[in-house]
Design a protein around this nucleic acid. Structure first.
Lengths: 121, 121
DNA sequence: ACCTTGCTCAACCAGATGGTTGACAAACGC
DNA sequence: GCGTTTGTCAACCATCTGGTTGAGCAAGGT
């Protein structure tokens, strides 16, 4: 699971991490700040942040003794591109299938007026 | 990890499964058919399909002794919605931040370049 | 100087994941 | 009926994951 796309999907497969990302859209947060709503140790949150960081979804800088976490929203595009590509492809196929079904029904239907000949050669 | 969104993300975090989904956009495939390109046992592929099925990305029907696998592309919307929602939010904040920075620069003397993110109302 | 705050690293643990092999079921071809 | 094709189920195994606690480090506050 070395490629980034896999890491991004894996990172967002966890509800806690998704919630963190959601909250980071409001703006940067410190680790303690992020950890507050969850009923887990600070270390667990730190681990979650490492996962998000390795996926490229987040960066951590330094500011005094605090380490503000910043969302890198561009990575979303990676996913969106993948998803949209295949969804579009699936939809196109679906449309083509509809066309095929329509033609089949046309050819099959005894009451059809059959205004055209068979498959054009 | 019981919610569907988590299962969908987790399912797509594996390159083999993503490739399967990609190939299924061309149309339904049998399990053997799907397994062909990969250097793993048929059982492993069967497991991958179970993961995709549990995520709602795929359905398996029966047709003679074959079990054609069918892609359920609507589930993509679940992800797209989540992603787009937060990406939009992040971008909006980004825009607001730009506005704030512009105002700061306007108010401050150009020489003063403190990178302070003080509580702007 | 010393304590507190904010956070990470290391070690450990239970459970999930992704792979294997072996057995078996279900439907067709003969 | 019998074997073949197609695929699943079960058991096992190594590794990854998400959690824990304990130790420690870096930067301010006093």
């Amino acid at each position: 699971m070395t490629d980034q796309l896999s890491r991004v999907f894996a990172a967002l497969a966890d509800p806690t991490r998704r919630d963190m990302v959601a909250r980071l859209t409001e703006g940067d947060h410190t680790v303690n700040d992020l950890a507050a709503p969850y009923d887990v140790s600070l270390q667990a949150v730190s681990k979650h942040l490492k996962v998000l960081e390795d996926a490229g979804l987040v960066t951590r800088t330094r500011e005094a003794q605090r380490r503000p976490v910043h969302l890198e929203a561009e990575v979303f595009d990676l996913m969106t591109k993948w998803i949209e590509r295949y969804r579009r492809q699936a939809e196109e196929r679906f449309t083509r299938l509809d066309a095929v079904l329509a033609r089949m029904q046309d050819a099959d239907d005894p009451s059809s007026t059959r205004p055209q000949e068979g498959t054009a050669s």
